[in-house]
Design a protein around this nucleic acid. Structure first.
Length: 388
DNA sequence: ACGCCTTTGAAGACT
DNA sequence: AGTCTTCAAAGGCGT
C-alpha cells in the first residue's frame, strides 16, 4: 500500500499517497468536487427528484452500490493508511501535532471558560454544546465529577452484564492526558484554532464566504451550531452523560440531539413509562465530519433534506485530503477510546433493535433475525428488479 | 408516530 | 476469515 510505504513515520501528506488517489480516480473526483458548481447542486437536486419520480428505481440503488464499492476500495486503502497513521500517532503524534487541529470538540481559547487551551497547558478543556451535539462529543466535557468507570445512572445490568468484552483501555492516556480515573481532558496537541481547517469551498462548491448564513464571527464559522458548546458545560437534564438517551428511538433521539435535554413533556412521559437509557454508539469519522459540515451545507445550499445533504457530504468527504480525513479518523478513534473508557461494558449490540424493543441489548436473536431477513429480502427484490 | 432515505465507518453477527 | 447487518446523525417526507 502506498500509504503504508510512505516511510513509516513520515508526514501524512506524503506525495506517494496522493499518487495512489490519482491512480484510483480519486484525483479526478477531487477536481470535480472542487469544481462542484451551483449547477451541480441543481443537478443533484433534480436527480434526487428524478429518483423519486422514477419510482425509486432499483437501478439507482445498484448504481449506488457500485459507487459504494468504488468508495470501499478507497476506504479500505485509506483505512490501512490510517492504521499506519495511528501507529505513528501512538508513537507521539499528539506530542508534536501533525495536524493543524481538530475542527470541533475543542474550542479556541476565547470559548474556553478557563482558556485551558494554550501551548503551555497540558490539558484541553471542552465545554458542552447546548444542542445538536453528539453524545460522545459531549462526553469530553464531562468532568471527573461526573465520570466513573461505571456511572451510577447506568442501568445496573450494564455493569453486571455477562459476556463483557470491553476492557479498560490501557493506552488511553496516550491520547487523553488522563489523571487517575479522569476523563474529559485531552492532550493539548490540537493547536488548531488559529488555522482554517478547511478550504473556503462550500459544500456546494460555492466559493463564497460563509458570512451570510452562518454566525458572523469568523471564529464561529468553523463551529457550526450543532457543534457549538453550550454556555454552561453542564448537562441541564441532570443526566450525567449525554451519550445516554431514552431508549425509544428516533423521536427521543431527536429531542436529545436538538436540545439534548428533556422537555417537560418528555419528563411526564418518562414518569408514565420509564425507559432504560441507551448509550449511543460513538460517531465514526464520517459522522463527525457530517456533524460539522452539515450546517454549512444547509446554509449555503439551502437544502434541508438530510438525504441530499448526506450525498453532498459523502462526496465532499471523498474530496478531502487524507490529512483532512485523518483528523476525523483520529478524532473518531479518540471518541471510541473515550466511550470505551466511560462504558467498558457497553456493546454496539446493546443498541441493536433497541429502538424497537425499548430495552437495549435485550432484543431476542429471533427478532433481530427477522429484521435481517426483511432487509435481505428487500435487497433481493431490488436485485431481481435490476436483472429484469 | 414512525420508518425511510442517504452517506461512511465501526462493531457485531453470521456463513 | 470474509461477508453481511445494524447503528450512529440529520430532517424532510410518506404512510
Amino acid at each position: 500500500m502506498p500509504q503504508l510505504s510512505s516511510g513509516g513515520g513520515d508526514d501524512l501528506g506524503a506525495n506517494d499517497e496522493m499518487i495512489a488517489f490519482k491512480d484510483e480516480g480519486e484525483q479526478e473526483e477531487k477536481i470535480q468536487e472542487n469544481a462542484f458548481t451551483e449547477r451541480d447542486l441543481a443537478d443533484l437536486k433534480s436527480s434526487l427528484v428524478n429518483e423519486s419520480e422514477i419510482n425509486q428505481s432499483p437501478n439507482t440503488a445498484a448504481v449506488r452500490r457500485g459507487q459504494q464499492g468504488e468508495h470501499r476500495v478507497f476506504q479500505d486503502k485509506h483505512r490501512e493508511h490510517l492504521e499506519g497513521v495511528s501507529k505513528q500517532q501512538d508513537g507521539g503524534m499528539y506530542k508534536s501535532p501533525a495536524y493543524p487541529g481538530y475542527p470541533f470538540l475543542m474550542l479556541p481559547d476565547p470559548y474556553l471558560p478557563n482558556s485551558s487551551v494554550s501551548p503551555s497547558s497540558n490539558k484541553v478543556s471542552v465545554v458542552q454544546q447546548s444542542h445538536g451535539m453528539h453524545p460522545l462529543t459531549s462526553l469530553l466535557p464531562y468532568s471527573n465529577d461526573h465520570f466513573s468507570p461505571s456511572p451510577p445512572h447506568l442501568p445496573t445490568d450494564m455493569s453486571q452484564k455477562t459476556g463483557v468484552h470491553r476492557h479498560q483501555s490501557q493506552d488511553l492516556s496516550g491520547y487523553y492526558s488522563l489523571p487517575p480515573g479522569g476523563v474529559g481532558q485531552i492532550t493539548p496537541s490540537m493547536s488548531w484554532q488559529s488555522q482554517p481547517v478547511y478550504p473556503a469551498l462550500s459544500p456546494c462548491g460555492f466559493r463564497q464566504p460563509y458570512s451570510s448564513g452562518l454566525p458572523s464571527a469568523s471564529s464561529y464559522s468553523r463551529f457550526p451550531h450543532s457543534l457549538m458548546l453550550g454556555p454552561s458545560g453542564v448537562h441541564p437534564t441532570g443526566i450525567p452523560h449525554p451519550a445516554i438517551v431514552p431508549s425509544s428511538g428516533k423521536q427521543e433521539h431527536d429531542q436529545y440531539d436538538r436540545g439534548m435535554y428533556m422537555k417537560p413533556q418528555m419528563e411526564v412521559k418518562r414518569e408514565k413509562e420509564p425507559k432504560k437509557p441507551v448509550i449511543k454508539k460513538p460517531l465514526n469519522a464520517f459522522m463527525l465530519y457530517m456533524k460539522e459540515m452539515r450546517a454549512k451545507v444547509i446554509a449555503e445550499c439551502t437544502l434541508k433534506e438530510s438525504a441530499a445533504i448526506n450525498q453532498i457530504l459523502g462526496r465532499r468527504w471523498h474530496a478531502l485530503t487524507r490529512e483532512e480525513q485523518a483528523k476525523y479518523y483520529e478524532l473518531a478513534r479518540k471518541e471510541r477510546q473515550l466511550h470505551m473508557q466511560l462504558y467498558p461494558t457497553w456493546s454496539a449490540r446493546d443498541n441493536y433493535e433497541a429502538g424497537l424493543s425499548g430495552v437495549a441489548g435485550e432484543k431476542s436473536k429471533a427478532d433481530w433475525g427477522k429484521k435481517k431477513r426483511r432487509k435481505r429480502e428487500k435487497q433481493q427484490d431490488s436485485n431481481t428488479d435490476n436483472s429484469l
